[in-house]
Design a protein around this nucleic acid. Structure first.
Lengths: 203, 203
DNA sequence: AGTGTATGCCAACAGATGTTGGCAATCCGT
DNA sequence: ACGGATTGCCAACATCTGTTGGCATACACT
């Protein structure tokens, strides 16, 4: 593998502090932005490098130079931090609501999650990325709030199923009845569910 | 549009009773079977007609002759009847459990739903098919069991989000923690959720 | 037996896709 | 002002895609 995002080049930069801004950074972020939009709208296969490059107003070959391959571009485009709140610091009876509102904010502020879900469903690498995020970001939060840490995986999976399911119906499949829900409605219905999945005793 | 599944041909058959089995019916069903498998495993774009034909041990051009186009094949492959039970005939406090168990049976007996979800996420026609099924099959059931029929759409959407979400996590994304759940566990956790979405008073 | 039709395969097309290599223009440190 | 590296575009490639038309075989019916 021949060193894909190769070379910062500019010799010295001995201080190691600033990551030495490249002149092409504007192009790089334009590509990432366009890639997220296209992956979110079309999924992996139909989001072509040519279309992404057209959106970013550059040549397709630039995408290859800066991200090595389509897979590399995807990996860079969906490197996502859920920024989950520390539920241990939230009053126990409010963790459900906290999680639901946080997820709604995430989905609506950022099309990265739409891209990730659309791709994760039909692409192996995408699915693995979703699995990573679940394991590294949601699971620890569940562990911190579950009565029995041994059940954290189960309870995190249940919570994820409800949160992902809502996002799927509302933002991806766009079922009319799911898209029509008001935000407060969603919170009012889903918060108790997630609350129960995370903190109620096993049924 | 030149009459795709064209001609039964064999002149008479005046009785109108038996749908006149064609000699190619074996091929047709072999194609459908392979198509469901491929769509379920790969999604719309990566499930190529050539691969489907190879699985069915026939020539790709046969697929075109019998189903007109790739879209036509997909439409035929995911014509699905959820066979939802009549919830009005189920004791009111058990409708949640009845729905959850029914959906688990559906997902595990038939890869059609996996195919439908995989395709629905990245393909417009697929998403519309999911919307149709929601509207024509799940919504009426909700209408029959909701306290206020006017909220049927909301409650059906919430139920769908939970049921689809579980299927997504377990059968499509294959999150380890979701795939590891035992059937009784799923029922025990999800049935009260769906029960509440369908029958509880608005929060 | 003979004829029309259904079935199946082969070969080919046009278009799109990821990816590569080379060449001009521009920047930056000396 | 010079030289090397960076940035960008163009043209091309090999491959794969859905789709089409033609041709041989096997069938069904008279």
């Amino acid at each position: 593998m021949p060193d894909r995002t190769d070379s910062n080049g500019t010799g010295h930069n001995g201080t190691g502090s600033a990551p030495s801004p490249r002149r092409s950074d504007a192009t790089r972020t334009a590509i990432l932005h366009a890639a997220r939009e296209r992956f979110a709208a079309d999924g992996y296969e139909r989001a072509t490098i040519r279309a992404i490059a057209r959106d970013a107003r550059i040549d397709p070959s630039m995408v290859m130079r800066y991200y090595g391959s389509k897979e590399g571009l995807f990996a860079a485009a969906v490197a996502v931090d859920l920024k989950l709140p520390d539920l241990a610091a939230v009053p126990r009876p409010e963790v459900g609501e906290a999680l639901v509102t946080h997820f709604l904010d995430l989905w609506e502020s950022n099309e990265v999650l739409t891209a990730l879900l659309r791709v994760g469903v039909t692409n192996q690498a995408g699915a693995e990325r979703v699995q990573d995020i679940f394991r590294d970001q949601l699971l620890p939060v569940a562990r911190a709030v579950c009565p029995d840490p041994e059940q954290a995986a189960t309870r995190a999976a249940l919570s994820a199923s409800q949160l992902l399911g809502l996002a799927l119906a509302r933002y991806v499949l766009r079922l009319a009845s799911a898209a029509a829900l008001h935000r407060q409605e969603i919170v009012a219905w889903l918060a108790p569910t997630v609350q129960r999945y995370l903190t109620a005793p096993s049924p």
